[in-house]
């Protein structure tokens, strides 16, 4: 009898099974499990909310926390490519993003927002993921420019990730190549608007459903 050596069954990478781009995006838009506050905090706020009349407390707390969060969104200074120059212009004298309460900060540990400004390459994607993981919750990501949205003019290149949403979840997409600072400011205002509509104390809101 012939004895066959056991062949290790390596599961195929998950992207191989996904035909549809929409399905892929859906998968990557799902938040990771630990992307929220502690379970004690969750259950406490849940309890207050379900108590008769308790919704007043959670709503007031919500609006206060959301106001505080949206008024001090600190972006990490993370420049990738051409869009980083426009991002610097947005942070600097004429457009002055500090009037929105945003202070560009050089450490991901103290930041809430990552502006992915430019082309994400295959060599850079693990680093980007790690920097995103280093940021404390709650955190947001703005994809700036065509390259970060979908690969842009370099979409067909062998070394380009076709959209940063295949690596990290994205809240606001800013189109343009590169987007002028006005566009980025508009995107940041949209993000603040999104933060202001968080539901239930401490919970991370799902991203807005895409409207085509």
């Amino acid at each position: 009898m012939e004895i066959k050596p056991p062949i290790p069954q390596v599961p195929a990478p998950i992207w191989r099974n996904i035909k549809d781009l929409q399905e892929w995006e859906q998968l990557h838009q799902r938040r990771p499990e630990d992307d929220k506050h502690s379970s004690l905090f969750e259950s406490l706020t849940e309890g207050i909310h379900s108590f008769p009349g308790g919704f007043v407390v959670t709503t007031v707390a919500d609006s206060f926390l959301n106001w505080a969060r949206k008024s001090s969104v600190w972006p990490v200074t993370f420049g990738l490519a051409c869009c980083a120059i426009e991002m610097m212009a947005t942070f600097a004298s004429r457009f002055d993003v500090e009037r929105l309460g945003m202070v560009p900060w050089a450490s991901p540990r103290h930041s809430d927002l990552m502006v992915v400004s430019g082309t994400v390459t295959i060599k850079m994607a693990p680093m980007l993921e790690r920097i995103y993981d280093q940021m404390p919750d709650p955190k947001w990501a703005v994809s700036m420019g065509s390259c970060a949205n979908s690969g842009g003019p370099f979409r067909h290149g062998y070394h380009v990730v076709k959209g940063v949403d295949r690596v990290i979840p994205v809240d606001v997409y800013v189109p343009g190549c590169p987007p002028p600072p006005e566009s980025l400011l508009n995107g940041l205002l949209l993000l603040q608007d999104q933060i202001a509509h968080f539901k239930r104390t401490g919970k991370r809101a799902a991203p807005n459903p895409k409207v085509d």
């Binding site: 990478p13 062998y158 990730v161 076709k162």
Partner: peptide, 17 residues
């Protein structure tokens, strides 16, 4: 080696495609 003529420009590279 990407710049060889036999290498297609959109050759996928897992896991990021």
């Amino acid at each position: 080696h990407p710049l060889l003529k036999s290498y297609a420009v959109d050759t996928p590279h897992p896991p990021y495609r």
